[in-house]
Simulated assay, not measured.
Amino acid sequence: MSGAQAWGFTDDRGTELGADRVPRRVIAYVRAGAALCDLGVTPVAVYGSGHDGEVLDPAKEGGLTAAAVTYLGPGRVLDEGLLRELRPDVIVDVTYDGKSPYALDEAVAERLGVPLVALSVGNELTLPAILDRFGALAVSLGAAPDAPAAPAAPDAETPAVASSADLRAAEDALRDVAARTGLAVLALSGAGPDQVHLARPLAWPELARLAELGVRLVDPGPGPGANWLTGDWDRAAELRPGLVLFDSRAHATAPDEALSGVRFTPWNPETPPSPAAYARFFRALAEALGA
């Protein structure tokens, strides 16, 4: 677009988007929508991915249910007529490859005549950079900007300031516990009684951040797969983790009995990219490590 615009944003594909007014009616992929909700922008509705069903996954909902945000079902089979009735001003998705939106065909947005923002959640960005990008989008959509860490009056803190401070506190707590315990942590996603996906820590921005904070993450070793190494549950047990981060999403299966005697704590690989959501996750992990 050219000329003066009331709203403009360049997404993580390098696509320059604009409109003659700030978008107010936001429809988003559930992970992006939950993050925006934390950041002060409540979507009209959210949609899921190919992993999702007709009901919103409790592991992914964040504050969406409390905010009464409508869930539309998986993005690839959305009713375009319903989308048109919802009159979106903008659609927000994520991208893992920096090229394509993850959960919605871009042609849908084109047919609706609506800009589609795709923000990266892949490992080409660090977790702090990902959080900054979602924060920037939220501010462009009307959310209050983050402010210096020491506002003039504590009772004047915006939610963004409070959640950023909470994230820093949660990281400090996790760093302290990790240094004291040194417990080996394995992240995984159950895929049935005979199969499990073992996370490669550096392939996941949030796991890489945990390593920076001193958490001793277990690498599953050589083999195929950029993000996961797929094996059986005995392979997971052979890695001798002291604590397992298990995928808590609805499509993943619970840890196998081969890991009996190991501590567990839930991990959502699609945690909303907001300071508040990661503060909750880091705090929960610190409690699990220190138990």
Rank of each mutant, 00 (worst) to 15 (best):
G62Q: 13
S2K: 13
A6K: 07
S260K: 08
H51A: 14
P224F: 12
S2L: 14
S189L: 05
G113E: 03
G75Y: 00
A19E: 00
E124F: 02
P273Q: 14
A138R: 01
D52V: 04
L112M: 03
P101I: 04
A4G: 10
L39F: 00
H197I: 00
D132G: 09
A45H: 01
G182N: 08
G135I: 06
A170M: 06
D97F: 07
F281K: 08
V69M: 07
A156M: 06
V215C: 08
A147E: 15
V161N: 11
S140H: 01
D93E: 09
D97C: 05
S120F: 02
R263Q: 14
R249Q: 15
E157Q: 12
E54T: 13
G261A: 07
A136N: 07
A191T: 03
D232I: 03
P58K: 06
N123Q: 07
D12V: 02
L183G: 02
W267Y: 15
A147F: 07
R24D: 06
W7K: 05
A153N: 11
G225K: 09
G225D: 13
A211R: 15
G98E: 11
R263E: 14
L86Y: 00
R21N: 02
E257C: 01
S164K: 12
L83A: 05
V108K: 05
A109Y: 03
E85K: 09
P224S: 13
Q5A: 11
G50E: 15
A173Q: 12
